[in-house]
Design a protein around this nucleic acid. Sequence first.
DNA 1: TTAATTGTATCGGTTATCCGATATAAACCA
DNA 2: TGGTTTATATCGGATAACCGATACAATTAA
Lengths: 94, 94
Amino acid sequence: MKGFLSYLILWILSKKKMNGAQISRELEIRRGTKPSPGTLYPALKELKDKGLVESDENKYYSLTDKGKIELNSACNFFCKAFYDMKEMSNCCER
Amino acid sequence: MKGFLSYLILWILSKKKMNGAQISRELEIRRGTKPSPGTLYPALKELKDKGLVESDENKYYSLTDKGKIELNSACNFFCKAFYDMKEMSNCCER
DNA sequence: TTAATTGTATCGGTTATCCGATATAAACCA
DNA sequence: TGGTTTATATCGGATAACCGATACAATTAA
């Protein structure tokens, strides 16, 4: 179940500006477990190096325009791959 | 964008019994590219070793009960992680 | 039957992904 | 002020994920 983390971070940041600790807590809500700091901070650094996120003087991260495009592209990919995903929603209700 | 393959295979097999070559073509439709045979067949072998899929005498693969549970569990995980995914559907339409 | 195509399978290697341990800095509190 | 918690960051290492090359079997076509 690897490989979701970076996209989940992009998704989270697309909704709200957050610092590392807040992102960590949000990930716990969504995934069930907090990422190790040795996972989260390198991931944020990589996203920043790629120009997908930026951080202000208080270490609050947000998406760049490039990050928004990247997230949209990932959504497109996902929706194409699971184009018949509606049936999956059976798992999600209730 | 790694880590989607095994779940996509489970998803595909939940809809239709297929052999390796058919799975490969279905993946091309959904992802844009065929997986390398060095990716696909080890992936199928692993899914089989884990008891998630089974194959008949003609190498047609299908989900086992365990595989159905696993797929459902993955759907639950995904829907929880991206519970506010509806907004993502903007990317999917049209 | 032979040749060509299609399908299956394995191997070695590369890179991605994530973790625990550790260190430092910042914020809070006694 | 000094001590404790919280937040940020890096490092080395383990495993997952995937690829191209290669080999062989099975099917199809000539």
